[in-house]
Design a protein around this nucleic acid. Structure first.
Lengths: 137, 137
DNA sequence: TTCGTGCTTGACGCTTACGTAAACGTAAAG
DNA sequence: CTTTACGTTTACGTAAGCGTCAAGCACGAA
């Protein structure tokens, strides 16, 4: 078995912040809340691909409106060790729970998109009415 | 043109709170932020179907992770008067904006659901491994 | 009249998710 | 050696979204 020699790229906190358009404060805050655990080289933080993925997951969770506490649980699911049976059952339970939530949100989105389409149609109708009115003057 | 005589039902704050499972404080807070404008009968609040719809829209917005300020803009779009051309153009712009956001969120949800499916599959595989192992003892 | 029930308006408290200095370390470049 | 860039911790500030009293009004039943 050979050591598959991937570059094993790393990033500084500033690089990661620039890439994902967040502040350094935000990244450090996520670490403070246990969402990130970068390596330390001296006192400085060094981020590995794994940390990068976690940050992306965190931000996706935020866009979805989850709290950081919820995001912590979700993200930790991805990194979960095989563990024993009870742990796996718990994980499966969590998955079901999150899926239910997400499907509710998807329904909310569909409904809202439809509502927006209606408002838009009304808008166009109103615009047409205005134009017809001014044309006939 | 006859006066279509719908019952014109109304609700108290407590009834509305119970129906949507929010506290009185929450409903009053939404009013404070300009999201609701119930009728007053003496000092008491009286909610009409229109208010009920708005509350439902607010809560859906919350599930979608919008801030109350954003929700205010969205909900007000529904009730917008025909208005003049500039106003309508602004509204259409807002609609496009919201739609873009919602479509991003929908993509996030799809991705997350797929990720969850993968974690779930891994989970089931791990469970199977555990069972096979204990079977062979 | 008194009680209970449901409503009202403050007003202070709390948590989340950061922003915003302040004060300091370190390492390469000029 | 000093400047500059980039990083660090500590800590107070703040906006949002309510929770949680406190104190009081209104109204029908007992």
């Amino acid at each position: 078995m050979h050591n598959s020699q991937v570059p094993a790229e790393t990033w500084s906190i500033a690089e990661l912040a620039a890439e994902y358009d967040v502040t350094l404060r935000t990244i450090r805050f996520y670490e403070d809340r246990g969402l990130l655990n970068p390596e330390r080289r001296g006192t400085a933080r060094v981020y590995h691909p794994r940390d990068r993925v976690r940050l992306a997951l965190i931000l996706r969770g935020k866009r979805l409106g989850f709290s950081l506490d919820e995001i912590a649980k979700i993200v930790d699911m991805y990194d979960a060790e095989p563990g024993e049976e009870g742990q796996l059952a718990y994980l499966l339970d969590q998955i079901t729970h999150r899926r239910t939530e997400l499907e509710q949100r998807r329904r909310d989105i569909e409904e809202t998109l439809q509502d927006l389409a209606e408002v838009e149609a009304r808008c166009h109708a109103d615009l047409k009415a205005l134009r017809d009115q001014s044309d006939s003057r």
